[in-house]
């Protein structure tokens, strides 16, 4: 199971992005500043935006799921229960999972952005897919919800999960770190070595590395372990 980007180039107006590399089974982080092209790359890997040149090969990938940055774009149901059903999920289970018990008849658009994001992520991750592309999954979530999401992602080991985010505080463990800089996707490698070549890591990780306490990975647990290391 792998996704290979063979020297692809994506152009949208004045913006262009080139990417080359292979995403194997595991959890991948694609980082980059706002406007660096993360969402564009996610659309391209999902097959929703053809590259101008180069090819994308998906071997062993039967099903793909893309979670767009704004959960509103995914809404097709007139009620929260209908929305769960549209994802092929059982409404009561999903609503209980994301703390929205009793909201079956509430319009998804009447939920707060954070509530809708929780509902959306619960629906997306409830179904098995070979390739998950999650665009800014942490946006609109509070810290507690971000931790819950990280726990959920930790169980996604049998497929390829690519998280596109500029989140700086709460992150899960990653198998590989990628970084978009100046319109190019760079493979920074696997942690902990990747942390040394990562040009824009979260500030806390940068400080720990500067203090000679490089964490093994970038999850909260790894950061705490590194910070408390004597």
């Amino acid at each position: 199971m792998r996704v290979s980007l063979d020297r692809i180039r994506i152009t949208r107006g004045n913006f262009s992005l080139t990417a080359d590399g292979t995403f194997d089974k595991g959890v991948h982080l694609v980082s980059g500043a706002v406007g660096s092209g993360k969402s564009t790359l996610a659309l391209c890997i999902a097959g929703m935006l053809p590259p101008e040149r180069g090819t994308i090969q998906r071997s062993g990938i039967g099903s793909t799921m893309l979670s767009l940055q704004f959960p509103e774009h995914h809404v097709t149901g007139m009620t929260a229960a209908e929305e769960c059903t549209s994802w092929g999920c059982e409404p009561d289970t999903i609503l209980a999972l994301c703390g929205l018990n009793g909201h079956n008849k509430t319009s998804p658009l009447a939920l707060s952005r954070g509530e809708l994001k929780r509902l959306h992520l619960a629906c997306v991750l409830n179904n098995p897919h070979d390739l998950f592309l999650l665009d800014e999954p942490f946006s609109s979530l509070d810290c507690e919800e971000k931790y819950a999401f990280c726990t959920l992602i930790a169980h996604h080991t049998s497929n390829i999960t690519i998280i596109f985010t500029h989140e700086q505080s709460v992150l899960p463990k990653f198998d590989r770190i990628w970084e978009i800089e100046n319109g190019i996707l760079h493979d920074r490698g696997t942690p902990p070595e990747a942390l040394k070549t990562w040009n824009s890591p979260p500030p806390l990780i940068k400080k720990l590395i500067a203090a000679g306490k490089s964490p093994r990975n970038i999850s909260q647990k790894d950061i705490l372990e590194a910070a408390c290391r004597t």
């Binding site: 659309l43 999902a46 799921m65 767009l68 995914h74 809404v75 097709t76």
Partner: peptide, 8 residues
């Protein structure tokens, strides 16, 4: 895109 993903 969302409709395509949900096959609706």
């Amino acid at each position: 895109i969302a409709y395509i993903l949900k096959k609706i």
